[in-house]
Structures are given as C-alpha cells and as structure tokens.
Amino acid sequence: MKNKTQNTTDKEFIFQKKNYMFMFIGLAFIAIGFILMSGGGSNDPAVFNPDIYNFRRIRLAPTLVLIGFGIEVYAILLNPNKKKNN
C-alpha cells in the first residue's frame, strides 16, 4: 500500500502575483474604455445627436480597450520566474 504523501503532487498556480497584477491593470483599461464609449444617445429617435462621433468615443475609448487587451496578452505571456542576466 502506497503512502498518501507519495501520490500527492505540489499544486501551484499557473500565474504568479505579478501576472495577476498586470491582468487587473488590463481589465481596468478595458473597463474604462467601455465606460468612455457608452452614452451619446438621444431620448427621441427622430433627433440626431452629433456627440456620438466625438473624440472620446471614436478615438480614445477604442484605444484604451486595445491597450487593455495588449496588457492582458503581456500578463499571460509574462514569466515571473525568469532570471535577468546582468
């Protein structure tokens, strides 16, 4: 009969604290981008609101979302155990 300690393996998380920190930063960028993208509608469908095409909704918000996705990719690919060669 085998001992239970021999059968168990050390369980580790896939990501470290540094990875999760970058993931939360990326999620914050994405959330802020979507919040900035919202709004600009009109209560009356017969009235056009030109604010829907302003800089914040067309340029700034999508840029923040893309930066957030880039940070997420970096957080996934980051290896915090890698040693620097100095």
Rank of each mutant, 00 (worst) to 15 (best):
K4P: 13
K4M: 12
K4C: 07
K4Q: 14
K4A: 13
K4G: 04
T5N: 15
T5Q: 15
T5P: 05
N7S: 10
N7G: 10
N7K: 13
N7A: 10
T8P: 05
T8E: 15
E12T: 11
F13C: 14
I14E: 09
I14W: 05
F15K: 03
Q16W: 04
Q16L: 07
K17C: 07
N19W: 01
N19P: 00
N19F: 00
N19Y: 00
Y20D: 02
M21T: 04
F22R: 03
F22E: 05
F24N: 00
F24D: 00
G26P: 00
G26N: 03
L27Q: 00
A28Q: 03
A28Y: 00
A28I: 05
F29I: 03
F29D: 01
I30M: 11
A31H: 02
A31T: 07
A31F: 05
I32H: 03
I32D: 06
G33C: 08
F34D: 09
I35M: 14
L36D: 10
L36P: 08
M37A: 13
M37Q: 11
G39H: 11
G40H: 04
G41I: 13
S42F: 05
N43P: 08
D44Y: 05
D44P: 05
P45N: 09
P45L: 10
A46S: 12
F48M: 12
F48L: 09
N49C: 05
D51F: 09
D51Q: 10
D51G: 06
I52S: 02
I52F: 10
I52P: 04
Y53A: 14
Y53P: 03
N54I: 08
N54M: 12
F55N: 15
R56Y: 06
R56D: 06
R57S: 07
I58P: 03
I58H: 09
R59T: 14
L60R: 11
A61L: 06
P62L: 09
T63H: 11
V65S: 09
L66A: 12
I67L: 12
I67M: 13
I67D: 09
G68V: 04
G68H: 03
G68E: 01
G68R: 04
F69K: 03
F69D: 01
V73I: 10
Y74M: 08
A75G: 04
A75Q: 02
I76Q: 00
I76R: 07
I76G: 02
L77H: 06
L77G: 04
L77S: 08
L78M: 06
N79E: 10
N79Y: 06
N79G: 03
N79S: 06
P80G: 06
P80W: 01
K83T: 12
K84C: 13
K84P: 13
N85W: 14
N85C: 13
N86L: 15
